[in-house]
Amino acid sequence: MGTAEPPKVNAAGGPGPATAARLGLIACHDCGLLSRFQAGGRLYCPRCGGVLHARKPNSEGRSWALVLAAILFYIPANVLPVTHTTYLGSTQSDTILSGVYYFMASGSWHIALIIFVASIVVPALKILILAFLLVSVRRRSDWRPEERTRLYHITELIGRWSMVDVYVVTVMVALLKLGALANVDAGVGIVFFGAVVVITMFAANSFDPRLIWDAMEKRS
């Protein structure tokens, strides 16, 4: 296993690690190519044509706005019914949580666990981690930057799994279309839930983990 080593010379002169930003370099978000920073106007990557930013533009503001929006949508997503089920004449409305309870009661605890983790724990965890990272960056924290970077990486990876419930509802509404015998309609809750998943994914995407390290360097 090879490991890339940091360059020997710290061209910035001063103390602190040689980061691209300190050396007046910008790494392309899309292809990773380094370019020299030039003042004035928009810069484009000469290799892939992507717009160059030393840091994601307005990262903190955008991430905060999206985190707050996600919190706002998280409530109706969990309170409003996601499905209305008619079975043999009687109709029942289910929220995400009552669906989890139904699985637990009927003995499919593994399905209950999947839905509970993917639909309730993961979105909440993402919101909490992003809020924590944003606060830590704002306070110029130097607490365990490596672990905080890893936390960020986790939020990037787990978000997609929250979509499971959206797909479950998609399959149910497609399959159970047998009138009074058996029918499932989607409830508004699933729309809010879908919004939470999409918004938290955008929130994770707009946060720039390099801010964690920038804050530390400004301290030293």
Partner: peptide, 8 residues
């Protein structure tokens, strides 16, 4: 991409 450290 996560901490901006320049490496060879």
């Amino acid at each position: 991409p996560h901490c901006d450290l320049l490496q060879r």
